[in-house]
Design a protein around this nucleic acid. Sequence first.
DNA 1: ATAGTTAATGACCGAGTAGTCAGCAAGTGA
DNA 2: TCACTTGCTGACTACTCGGTCATTAACTAT
Lengths: 202, 202
Amino acid sequence: MTEPRYRRRKEDRPKEITAAAFDAFAEKGFAATRVDDVAKRAGVSKGLLYLYFKTKEELFKAVVKSVVIRRVDRLIENVETTELSSDNFIRGPLLSFLQKIPGSPVAIVIRLLIAEGPRHPDLVDYYYENVVAKGLAAISAFVKRGVDRGEFRQSSVSDLPHLILAPVMLSIIWGIIFKDKQLDTDTLIATQIDMILTHIKA
Amino acid sequence: MTEPRYRRRKEDRPKEITAAAFDAFAEKGFAATRVDDVAKRAGVSKGLLYLYFKTKEELFKAVVKSVVIRRVDRLIENVETTELSSDNFIRGPLLSFLQKIPGSPVAIVIRLLIAEGPRHPDLVDYYYENVVAKGLAAISAFVKRGVDRGEFRQSSVSDLPHLILAPVMLSIIWGIIFKDKQLDTDTLIATQIDMILTHIKA
DNA sequence: ATAGTTAATGACCGAGTAGTCAGCAAGTGA
DNA sequence: TCACTTGCTGACTACTCGGTCATTAACTAT
């Protein structure tokens, strides 16, 4: 009565494989990761992997999508339903949301997109539409609301969303390239938010 | 009396090869670029390339170094010798220096470092010491001078250099990933500088 | 001229890897 | 328990690409 050599788990395999792929890509990047590695990490054979994903590239896209979904949407929901003053919302939930990004899977995805994006235009489009555009729009709408309420000055700069993102981006990149050279990303982001608020406050 | 099939040009070959390699890496990234491609672009045989560069990785390092040299040094020199007030220097030479970065070869190198850096720690160290550390130090020293002269407030934030770099970094990344989705990097950087200046002015 | 030096060539090799497929065995139902 | 479906395996193939090296031909010195 020995253990069966494997179990058939059609439902769970894809998730497990994308999770394993994410880890592998995070460590080595897409190009340097072997499909065999991913399979081994997921505890399956290479053949099975190819049953669920037509090509390595297909797998790559699945990984990006798996990370992206639902992250921004939650923020947007918050923006729309919050009872806080604009100021408090920015210093509170928005700030802590931003501070979490550099250490999150999103940072990994950004790295992958930088490295491989130029070769996968449709993936970039997908990411732009589902994450970037949404995020930018949400922040813009929020600032507009602040203006309407008289909390912010009328002339509030139009590239505010990008200015808010900038230190987050820097933190992400820093973490990727100069792992060891520490950088206090939390204060960096907080300081920027601070500067921006005093700049646009009515 | 036919043309010779090739000329012996020992002096020029390395430069030509690194230039060709830069172009190739810029287009496809390091991993996806074939040595044969680089050779073809440079108008030489693969064998010759291997006469001047021991390995593909060696070539990669040469490319990075060729872009890096002398760029930051010139800025540092300016910082140290300028007669302008801190304010004017920042709004003038420093700003225009920063605005040029996103479209310059440095942007390409950043992309390469993000994609391949984790696999080439010594290269990252080289880049950090010769570009990043120098640049940060120069800006810090400059701010300190401004404080001494009474132009800036004492408490001028310590991560100012990073804050200055942030929008530059964002612009670089944006340009790499979302080539088509335009972003007015010049105003973005200028606005940030503006914000920072009003923030630290005495 | 001509012998010697070496920049330059390109066919070749072997390691490594994305993707395939014939067969196996875990689950299923009668 | 036995036939049947199908999730799963892993050896295999076809091919790509970094790196080598025997050979060639452009230069140089005498």
